[in-house]
Design a protein around this nucleic acid. Structure first.
Lengths: 342, 342
DNA sequence: CTGTTAGCGCCTTCAG
DNA sequence: CTGAAGGCGCTAACAG
């Protein structure tokens, strides 16, 4: 049984389809009784007008920005980016709506991109924390759907708003070195996550670079990788602290993981930062409130810049320039302390 | 100049519109040269096929759930609810997409509801932390758009998934009383926010109830209201601590505000919980990680339950029962300490 | 006030 | 392999 159309309603209410259309659109030119009959028919049939048909007829164009991401991995940082997107969009007079795409696995990603390209369901696509293949990009290009990547390698050859993870890793570690630390551990996600994203690896590269600059030999035991998030980091840090020569400082690749480290330190009966310093990465809003020393990467702003750029791409055909993100900086707070290099 | 249609493309490429349609849909039955000519024409005209027309023709139905909220007020708690929504939706085989509506003022709300009702752009609507009027509900009803409220008064006469704010306030305060506190302050949002939401007031009612039960006289000076969020709460708490007889415990109506209170306590040279206990409300994921004692209200789960209920409403016409949320509980952590009642 | 008639832009037959 | 014709569900102009 197919969905009822305006015609069915008309038939049932014993009126013409024009009349049905009129009551649907609150036209005043309908007699109360007729209107009632039509409304009843609508109710009985559970009729819902077809949006597509209305749009088509009305030459009505809906404005949608798609946001696609690997959900549930570091949801807080995603949320802050999303907030930026909403804020930027909210500032517009005729605002776009956001369509959130749920990606829980690589296979889904492919399917979604396919659908988006086929249907052109959105005017533009924001790709957050997600790697897409050349083929997928080609699909989008062919479908004429502009897209902007958030948190991709800066030097990538397609539109994106990014910060330099390598530099971020460098800054973090350099900050710790400058505060006298020499035994510095790195806690992060596995180098290649299930979506082919390499944020962790990039930050570690920067970490190594800083160590090299200070002539500090990196130690394999100080590199601890695992799943994203608080719990995994807590366990990794716990192991770390059991070593004969535990690190005096931990650089965690996200604020959530940094919190996990702090919990581990405290659970071991040690204090932050007196016994162990902890440095995070993200600068979530919450980190300001919890006194976490961390690398600020302007998450919310990245969302804002991302959409703005995307809107540029949607409006003009000519290549507009990607906006430049403000520089990464370490925000000194309460979880890092100077020590004398031993 | 109007947007180019398939017809313009056909004209420019000197083919029939059928052929254009074929290349758009990757039909194999097109000669390479023709395909190329058409593709060129598409590019030159910057042609984008009309989604509505495709849908109409293909009898293709898009599935959308609308999420509407007052953006930027307690974004973290919104984010956790949203995560629940995404999770529940992600578990479906033929998943719905989420459309995020940006509401920055009352006027916008009215406009949006209007649009949603008129366009039926979504199959169902999730209304979070937002009060809607009877007229607005009537509009949605008339338009046959099911909706579910999140965090509304439980006893409301329309579909919603809620927890009892009054009981939450009661539990929180009762917890503090049971730990020996008698001088308990309440810090929260203004009783009626700009969207007519009364969460703060409800929780305060519960607060008073608990006090009464313990025969503790409420003091006006211990009631401090202001804008939502960390900063405002920090200032309010700061003032509070300057009193001759400052409270020994603070109940903040959100975890963010609790963090603000903690910051104020520390800034005053006092310790949490030794000198002042602080109790929050929400139990954000982050609160577990920061050791905040708080009232758990299962934010993520509320999102899950909300959509599930909404999907029920969309599928069946008969009234399905609203799911029942798990009970509110105080989660003991590290920011509340027992004292001897003075 | 109400029924009827053209399209809206695209896809899918069906002949050529 | 390609062009032309019909129709998707609805709205908007016309006649009555």
């Amino acid at each position: 049984m197919t969905r009822p159309t305006i015609r069915h309603v008309a038939q049932k209410a014993r009126v013409g389809i024009g009349t049905v259309s009129r009551v649907l659109n609150n036209s005043p030119n309908v007699s109360p009784e007729t209107r009632q009959r039509v409304m009843d028919a609508i109710r009985e049939l559970n009729f819902k007008p077809n949006l597509a048909a209305r749009q088509l007829s009305n030459k009505l164009q809906l404005h949608h920005i798609g946001v696609i991401t690997q959900t549930f991995i570091n949801y807080y940082s995603f949320a802050e980016r999303l907030r930026g997107v909403q804020r930027a969009l909210g500032a517009l007079s005729n605002p776009y709506q956001i369509i959130l795409y749920n990606i829980s696995s690589m296979a889904f990603l492919d399917e979604q991109i396919d659908l988006i390209a086929q249907n052109r369901a959105v005017q533009g696509l924001l790709i957050i924390d997600l790697r897409i293949t050349d083929e997928q990009r080609a699909q989008l290009d062919e479908a004429n759907v502009p897209y902007v990547g958030l948190n991709h390698f800066t030097n990538v050859s397609w539109p994106c708003v990014a910060t330099d993870n390598l530099q971020g890793g460098y800054l973090a570690t350099e900050y710790l070195l400058r505060h006298g630390h020499r035994r510095i551990a790195y806690i992060g996600d596995d180098f290649v996550d299930s979506f082919g994203f390499r944020t962790s690896q990039e930050r570690y590269q920067g970490h190594l670079q800083a160590l090299a600059e200070y002539n500090v030999q990196p130690r394999d035991e100080y590199l601890r990788l695992g799943m994203y998030g608080y719990e995994a980091a807590r366990h990794l840090a716990q192991d770390l602290l059991k070593m004969d020569q535990p690190p005096t400082a931990i650089f965690a690749m996200s604020d959530m993981q940094a919190l996990g480290c702090i919990a581990a330190v405290r659970a071991a009966g040690l204090r932050v930062p007196q016994d162990v310093s902890v440095l995070g990465y993200d600068d979530l809003e919450i980190s300001e409130h919890t006194g976490l020393t961390t690398v600020r990467q302007h998450l919310e702003r990245s969302g804002q810049y991302g959409v703005r750029y995307l809107l540029d791409l949607i409006r003009r055909r000519d290549q507009s320039q990607p906006p430049e993100m403000p520089p990464l900086t370490v925000i000194p707070r309460e979880t890092v302390q100077s020590i004398c290099p031993s």
